[in-house]
């Protein structure tokens, strides 16, 4: 029993349940826009679903543009390291690379 609770996020069935639940919450939030009164300082704010659309479209654009940027900006991991590794440093504790001393 304990194991099943522990690994709740890995099972595919649970994941699709989670996605459905999440989408339902989003739809409810969207619907609330029509039910609750909302004051705003800006004309855009009074459009129903403005924040929802802005958040969604903004993030999709963010990821797509970032993917394009990768084509321009991405280099191998040791891109800078090649030249730097020729120079000797005072101490180089490569075993301590990832741990506190």
């Amino acid at each position: 029993m304990k194991l099943r609770i522990k690994y709740i996020f890995t099972e595919l069935k649970n994941m699709s349940c989670f996605v459905y639940l999440f989408s339902t919450i989003c739809m409810i939030l969207f619907a609330l826009d029509f039910m609750l009164y909302r004051h705003g300082n800006h004309p855009l704010e009074s459009i129903p679903g403005f924040y929802a659309f802005y958040g969604f479209i903004g993030c999709v654009l963010l990821v797509i543009i970032a993917k394009w940027l990768r084509a321009v900006l991405m280099r191998p991991e040791n891109y800078y390291h090649k030249t730097e590794s020729k120079i000797k440093v005072p101490y180089n504790n490569s075993e301590a690379e990832n741990v506190d001393l």
Binding site: F22, S23, I25, C26, L29, F30, L32, D33, L36, R38, E45, G49, Y51, A52, F53, Y54, G55, F56, I57, G58, C59, V60, V63
Partner: peptide
């Protein structure tokens, strides 16, 4: 409500 919508739909995009 505005902030919750913004964030939930950003998560939905993810």
């Amino acid at each position: 409500l505005a902030q919750t919508q913004l964030l939930f739909f950003a998560a939905l995009a993810f």
